[in-house]
């Protein structure tokens, strides 16, 4: 808000000439060019871009890796599955992260690696008395035909749906695995990440949403669906079937930089995989 400043300046700026500050201004003009020239030769490290669902896990492993190997820089950008896939195709990022399967036209251009699998959990506020639903009930809730918790054994309160936005890997997986193509009602609140859904559900006793099992914590309650609770054990046993892959993708024929190779090796190593499982992910690739 410089409008007011301006009026004051009109008095302030009247001063005698002093110094030759313009030289430094000229110097400032040249600096960007210098900076750009210097930057060119310098490697900025590994960039891994994509799914906001995968990013927290990739970031965690990157932190561990960087702790063990001082001086390495692995930049994890959480911008979305499609952005990650696009970035990998364009070569903007060496590795893309996706929380959905590649579309055929994308698979033509990219190689993929399943780093883990992730279960989708339907979550509610911890104070919500409902703790299990049938798949049919979940579908009815999200398609908008059941609108009150009282129909599900809960209080006489409206149901506030919280979903991911169109294009999100999690949303795609939920539509496919749980809604099975049924449309979700347009009155649902939309949030830009799993963490944001968890945050909204944790604050609203009437809310219901879905997130990756890996980030369920004690601020929300994950519901059993068809009497099967979402857990790593149930996923591995094949009884909880709402599971999707977490992918690393890269351009077909791409030669990895040494750091990219080492990072991928670390993620797939026994230690890396164990870390991911500790965080609630399930070993890939799909067994059932």
């Amino acid at each position: 808000m410089h409008i007011r400043t301006r009026r004051l300046l009109s008095i302030a700026a009247v001063r005698g000439p002093r110094g030759r500050c313009w030289r430094s201004l000229l110097f400032l003009a040249l600096l960007p060019l210098l900076l750009a020239a210097c930057g060119q030769s310098d490697s900025a490290g590994l960039t891994v871009t994509g799914s906001t669902s995968v990013a927290p896990f990739a970031e965690h492993l990157a932190e561990l890796y960087q702790h063990a190997h001082a001086g390495t820089a692995i930049n994890i950008q959480s911008l979305g599955s499609s952005a990650g896939i696009q970035a990998a195709i364009d070569g903007v990022a060496e590795i893309g992260m996706s929380s959905r399967e590649l579309k055929p036209e994308e698979a033509d251009k990219l190689d993929e690696l399943v780093i883990a699998r992730d279960a989708l959990a339907v979550i509610v506020h911890p104070a919500n008395p409902v703790s299990k639903l049938s798949l049919k009930q979940v579908q009815d809730i999200f398609s908008g035909s059941v609108r009150s918790w009282s129909a599900l054994g809960g209080p006489e309160q409206p149901i506030d749906l919280v979903i991911r936005e169109a294009g999100s890997g999690t949303a795609g997986a939920f539509d496919e695995l749980i809604m099975k193509g049924k449309a979700i009602t347009i009155t649902a609140l939309r949030q830009g990440s799993n963490g944001a859904i968890r945050q909204v559900v944790a604050e609203n006793p009437n809310a219901i949403g879905y997130i990756s099992l890996g980030i369920v914590d004690n601020t929300v309650k994950a519901l059993a669906i068809n009497n099967v609770a979402p857990s790593v054990a149930h996923v591995e046993a094949g009884t909880y079937t709402f599971v999707r892959p977490f992918l690393f993708v890269w351009r077909k024929g791409h030669t990895f930089s040494p750091l990219a190779k080492q990072y991928i090796d670390y993620v797939m190593s026994a230690e890396g995989q164990q870390e991911l499982q500790n965080l609630g992910l399930v070993k890939g690739p799909a067994s059932p």
Partner: peptide, 26 residues
């Protein structure tokens, strides 16, 4: 950020900007 056209100020809504910001990433 819901996609229904709001008819009351107590309802959620989406704006031109928020939809870009929300969906651009994906």
């Amino acid at each position: 950020n819901s996609l229904a056209i709001p008819v009351s100020p107590l309802q959620p809504a989406t704006t031109l900007t928020s939809n870009i910001g929300l969906e651009m990433a994906y």
